[in-house]
Amino acid sequence: MTLAQYIVTAVGLAAIAGVLWYFLFSRGSAVVAQQTGAGGVQEVRILVKGGYTPDTVVVQAGKPVRLQFYRDETADCSERVVFEELGIDVPLPAFQTTAVEFTPSEPGEFRFRCGMNMLKGLLVVEPATADRKPAASPHKFHE
């Protein structure tokens, strides 16, 4: 093999590994839910446009969660949002905010996705006793 072939092979294999890792296994930055209202509802607004922004949401177990999905596109892919383990499967009408409400009882990581399993997000449920105050401004958390 020539040098060029060695280089192409090495770069190609690295690119394959990179692509698979980036799209299938990596994770974006997290946003901690802010608590609003007297009932302690943990609320996060999520923009649905070619993906979920933010795509990782951190909440505490045992308290009600309200995820406000705003779908800012007509692309069919994002028509539904599915939390398989939580039994949630709701349509998201275009250009509307749809609230998804539930109370996680167990800590853990729950994936959420679009109907076709192409857009992905992660809900991280922390134990209720986790000793961390929600950041005043959500984006400060991952700075």
């Binding site: 092979t9 190609g12 394959i16």
Partner: peptide
């Protein structure tokens, strides 16, 4: 469908490498 596109990207790169080599 969830893993389809990344895998196709990987196959395409693999095809490139094999043809090149």
């Amino acid at each position: 469908a969830g893993v389809f596109v990344p895998i196709v990207l990987a196959i395409a790169i693999a095809a490139f490498v094999v043809w090149f080599d």
